[in-house]
Structures are given as structure tokens and as C-alpha cells.
């Protein structure tokens, strides 16, 4: 189990939605650029890792009960997308890591079977 705050440190990220709760524990991560797959296969309470930065990422994450979003590859969603995430109380972390590296950094710190 990791908190989003611990994930933030692991991926050397920047929190784009200050003030939101990062202390809840999260034991699952779902990494994909395909929102169709997120809708089909992610489990509630997962952290979403993605390279997409449009508003649909926020809406998809919200609908599947994701804990937060980690945006990889140095990409940054625009202010409207960040504002929408903040309004939905969905933290967004931006990192320069690639999706593979972000997954590797986080999964190495999750107990086996919870990756």
C-alpha cells in the first residue's frame, strides 16, 4: 500500500492540484493511454498513470473511482483540465518519467500481487 504522497516522491513528480488529500492508501495502479481500457479493466481505488492530458482523462478517472492521476513524459494538462480535476477532488501529479519508468518506480514499492 502506497499513498499518493509516496508515489509523488517516487516519480519525482510535481503536484498540480495543491491542497487535495494525498494520504489515502492505494494498492493498485493502472497504466494506459487508452481510456477505453481504463473503463473496461481498471479497478476502483487505482492510481491512473497516463500520457494523455485531455479532460476525458479526468472524467474517466472520476467515473472509475481512481484515487489520482499521474501524467508522465513531462506533459502537463492545461489549466481548465487541472481545475476540473481539483473540483472533482482528483489529485494530478506530473512527472518527467516515461510511463515505463513511473510504473517501475512505483511497482517496486508495492507488495507483490498488488501491482
Amino acid at each position: 500500500m502506497l499513498t499518493l504522497r509516496e508515489m509523488l516522491v517516487l516519480v519525482k513528480g510535481e503536484l498540480l492540484t495543491p491542497g487535495l488529500d494525498l494520504e489515502a492508501g492505494c494498492s493498485k495502479v493502472f497504466a494506459s493511454d487508452l481510456m477505453s481500457d481504463v473503463l473496461s479493466f481498471s479497478e476502483p481505488g487505482s492510481t491512473l498513470i497516463t500520457g494523455l492530458v485531455n479532460a476525458h482523462v479526468v472524467r474517466t478517472a472520476c467515473l472509475v473511482d481512481a484515487m489520482g492521476i499521474i501524467v508522465v513524459q513531462g506533459k502537463r494538462p492545461n489549466a481548465a483540465v487541472v481545475d476540473e480535476a481539483a473540483a472533482k477532488k482528483l489529485p494530478i501529479i506530473a512527472t518527467g518519467c516515461s510511463m515505463f519508468e513511473a510504473c517501475w518506480r512505483i511497482s517496486g514499492n508495492l507488495p507483490d500481487g498488488m501491482r
Partner: peptide
């Protein structure tokens, strides 16, 4: 936008 994978209707059914 991350859609169009052909999962929509089958995911609705699920």
C-alpha cells in the same frame, strides 16, 4: 482522445 478501441458496447454489457 483515448477512445475508439471497440470496447464500448461490450463494456456496457459487462
Amino acid at each position: 482522445l483515448g477512445f475508439g478501441a471497440g470496447m464500448g458496447l461490450s463494456n456496457i454489457k459487462k
